[in-house]
Nucleic acid binder design. Sequence first.
DNA 1: AGTGAAAAAGGTTCCGA
DNA 2: TCGGAACCTTTTTCACT
Lengths: 154, 154
Amino acid sequence: MSELDSIDLKMLRILQREGRIATTDLADQVGLSATPCARRLKRLEDDGYIRGYRAVLDPKRVGCGLQAFINIRLGDHAEKTVAAFQSALLRRQDVVAVYAITGSSDFLIHVMAADLDALSEFTTRTLLRMPGIRDTQSSIVLSVLKAETAVPLA
Amino acid sequence: MSELDSIDLKMLRILQREGRIATTDLADQVGLSATPCARRLKRLEDDGYIRGYRAVLDPKRVGCGLQAFINIRLGDHAEKTVAAFQSALLRRQDVVAVYAITGSSDFLIHVMAADLDALSEFTTRTLLRMPGIRDTQSSIVLSVLKAETAVPLA
DNA sequence: AGTGAAAAAGGTTCCGA
DNA sequence: TCGGAACCTTTTTCACT
């Protein structure tokens, strides 16, 4: 479970931008031949540095024109309530992220929907009917100036 | 700019999970031979449905143990101030996302840092010294229950 | 850990349906 | 638009440094 050397970091930086790059090209870019590059890549995957690879879609292009962040405060923090609330959220495809946070609310969720109608339907029909919710506060995304999946690597 | 048929959608769904899948395997999974599958994939890329491919790293594993969301309210909405503020944020690697939002604040940003020290340094040394900022409100992420890059595809 | 060559697997192009 | 064959590239394996 050794450390990452500068070549590993270089590889990770490149792979965060070009997830489908051929290992031969990756090898060129980090100054290695194909064999050790493939070995390192496998190690980075096996040791859990790389979780997986994803195609990044253009949300608007595929019919998801609206995004929102919703702060949620629970009224009841009983373990059972919290667990039920969480698993209900996690099951939904349109809830793309769920964070437990500090501050004035308990959870921050990131929702994607086709349009305002779909979003308000989610909020009123689904979210507000979940047990244990005290209040919610929605922030609709007007524009996405940046949305990296990339983790900063010093 | 034609529509996406059910095979295209299937391909996109698979690619959101397995961004590095071989096109022959993708072809098998959608019931096509390699040639038309590769052609469709190229079209999805060229027409902007697929923005790119990314390796997804484990943040903790690569030294980014702390995430936070920060709501930012500007005091001065002059175009120049807003533009300067935005470009300063966009330049920073540790600011992984920037959204302009509705509601009580103007921007929501997603920050990744090694630890609390690094985060508080960012807030006090960088963020609060930016011109035009009226106030900020940080929510530190206690746990990530879900963080999909995937866009929901009906 | 890295290299280079050979075998296997995957990707691309062209043509016919 | 699809499928198949030929051709080319990439990946993997292996012997060696």
